[in-house]
Simulated scan of single mutants.
Amino acid sequence: MTTLIVDSACDLPKALIEKKNVQLLPATIIYDKNILQDFRDPEQTISMYESAILNKDHDSESQPTSTKDITRILEQTIANGHTDLVIQTVNRVRSPTYENAVESATLLSKRYASQNVSIRVQDSRTVFTGQAVLAAHTLALIDKGIGGTKLRRIIDSLSSNVHAYQVPADVFYLRERSRKKGDNSISWLGAKVGSLLNISPIVLALDDKTFPVTKIRGFNNAANKLLAHTLEKVEQGLLSPFVCISYAGDPKELHKLAGFNELKLAIKARKYQLITTPMSLSGGVNLGPGTLSVGFATTPYEWKD
């Protein structure tokens, strides 16, 4: 049986992680000189979002799981009897987690060469809810007894079609966090004007690229636009039966969005599965509290307002 390992940026709910025995590589969250490892505890995550300690008035950042920590976690997983390991990481453009995992896997593959241990590392090419779609699809295939090269081939093909959308609540927050990582794609003036005019971008992460597809006045309007767009794609048919939604706060707030319940009904009617969860702390630190993310898999297309 194949064992799936994901980093904590992957927006899978804690309950599903535990039910499917998914192993977790926790990112490190640093806020106001405090250090916390993100094990995707929902109560702790929601509490941190609601306490405002991650807002733009506080200094916070995320750090990827180190090679040393990945090695320790993999050794423990192997010691517990798991010998066929698949590691899926946040896209390698956004984080060194992939390189750290490859380094660890190479080391351990040599160490356990005589014990029939297989360790494969996959770049998800996506982020957050996109990772969750890929992970959920992987788990469904594992449940069907699919593994090895066939599993890797299916998931590699699907990863290029996973669309992960984000609607940040505060574009100025997004600009400041991006700048700390050396990304100057959002100018100070553009962020300031966006904040003053209450402009919310809808940002797409697709196949290792991240870019805005449109800008809408008002977070709720942008969020409902994204949910309506997702509804349209669900009705057209998806490449994977999983639709994942995360929110950098309490997911109960999703029910206040006009388009959420309609989307939920459409997913059920199509016999797809909706997965909702608090956004990872890694996602919240980089995108800001209040951010909405939606992930699904479909053939790439051009966004049309």
Rank of each mutant, 00 (worst) to 15 (best):
S160M: 08
W188H: 06
A135C: 10
I73K: 01
L196Q: 07
I119S: 02
P26K: 06
V167S: 10
P241T: 11
S114L: 14
K225D: 11
S104W: 09
S109Q: 14
G237I: 09
Q166V: 12
L174Q: 09
K33F: 07
G190A: 13
L158N: 03
V294I: 15
Q37T: 11
F172D: 14
R72C: 03
I17G: 03
P13R: 06
N116Q: 15
G194P: 08
V117W: 05
R179Y: 12
W303I: 00
R152N: 11
E18V: 10
T298M: 06
P212S: 06
Y272V: 00
Y272K: 00
I155R: 04
K20G: 00
L25Y: 01
V133P: 03
I29Y: 09
V127G: 00
N80T: 11
L108H: 09
E18Q: 12
Y112I: 09
Y98R: 01
L196G: 11
K14P: 01
L231F: 09
L226V: 03
N161K: 14
N161Y: 02
F296N: 05
T97V: 14
T2M: 13
L196P: 01
I216Q: 09
I199Q: 10
T138Y: 00
P168T: 12
I142A: 06
V167F: 13
G218E: 05
A132D: 11
T138K: 04
N116A: 15
A140N: 08
T71D: 08
Q273T: 13
S109N: 14
N198H: 11
L197W: 08
L226C: 08
D208M: 08
L25F: 08
D183A: 02
W188I: 12
P300A: 05
K19R: 13
D57N: 14
S109R: 13
S8M: 08
F219C: 07
F128Q: 09
K68I: 10
L263V: 10
S95T: 13
G147E: 06
